[in-house]
């Protein structure tokens, strides 16, 4: 069974149609990278999957469950999906350890001590072992984003959505975050990510999906997309992002 099936999904904001019939399937352990210009619909697609935006038409299937059904318990669905945002969105009034364990404690009903112990292990593994008691504003952008990733994965979500998670970081800090994502791929996470880091997409993606004007124009292996793009829009986009 596929982890995620996106079937002919449409979404408009007023007169502006942002998604125009998107189809996409992720199998278990897939790492799929969405590329495309700003405004091509990458972020909106991620937000509809997490039920932050309601789709206008089509279907979303998460591990066999129709999550676009209006009767679905949206909080339960969101609890099964991990999300990391461009702007980190850590809770500024909570210490790192409380940020990371909030969902485990308050949504999944895990024993707080056990959750904290697991979180501490994971944070230590990602080089944040000495930051447990700090507030987010004491951390660098790269550290904050790594904390945000730990927050998203602590409850072992079926699917991980990463929305341009390095776009708000300066180049020095991008590497430490991408290293972490590489590690997630190795442990078998199913990941759908939007990014502008083409080198990283080429290295880590099982499949690269090029979005343009709310549609998937082209999808395939990194080799296919980067070395032999078929569509003129893809070629133009790649020429722009790789030579500047």
């Amino acid at each position: 069974m596929s982890v995620l099936e996106v079937r002919d999904v449409w979404k408009a904001f007023g007169d502006n149609t942002v998604l125009k019939g998107v189809d996409l399937t992720l199998e278990e352990h897939d790492v799929v990278v969405l590329i495309g210009a700003s405004g091509s619909g990458k972020s909106t697609l991620l937000r509809t999957i997490n039920l932050i935006e309601r789709i206008d038409d089509g279907q979303l299937i998460l591990s066999g469950d129709d999550i676009s059904d209006p009767g679905v318990d949206m909080d339960k669905v969101r609890a099964r999906i991990g999300v990391v945002f461009q702007q980190f969105n850590l809770f500024p009034h909570m210490r790192v350890i409380d940020n990371v364990t909030l969902a485990a404690r308050k949504v999944h009903g895990e024993n707080p001590a056990a959750a904290r112990e697991r979180a501490a292990e994971l944070l230590a593994k990602f080089g944040l072992g000495d930051k447990l008691r700090d507030y987010p504003d004491r951390l660098s952008g790269g550290q904050q984003q790594r904390v945000a990733i730990v927050r998203a994965i602590l409850t072992n979500p079926e699917l991980l959505l990463l929305d341009e998670i390095t776009s708000a970081l300066d180049p020095m800090l991008v590497g430490e975050v991408l290293d972490l994502v590489r590690g997630l791929k190795d442990t078998g996470s199913t990941i759908l990510m939007a990014t502008h880091e083409m080198a990283f997409a080429r290295e880590v993606a099982d499949r690269v999906v090029f979005m343009h004007g709310g549609r998937i124009l082209e999808a395939g292996s990194p080799k296919d997309i980067f070395d032999n793009p078929q569509q003129p829009e893809t070629r133009e986009f790649l020429a722009r992002v790789t030579h500047h």
């Binding site: 932050i52 969101r78 609890a79 999300v83 702007q87 969105n89 850590l90 809770f91 909030l102 999944h108």
Partner: peptide
């Protein structure tokens, strides 16, 4: 965005208010 982050973790509207928005 704080609300979005909290709801994305699966927190209900009430818990989001109590643990994230009100504090």
């Amino acid at each position: 965005s704080q609300r979005v982050a909290a709801r994305s973790l699966g927190l209900t509207h009430g818990k989001t208010l109590r643990m994230v928005v009100i504090p």
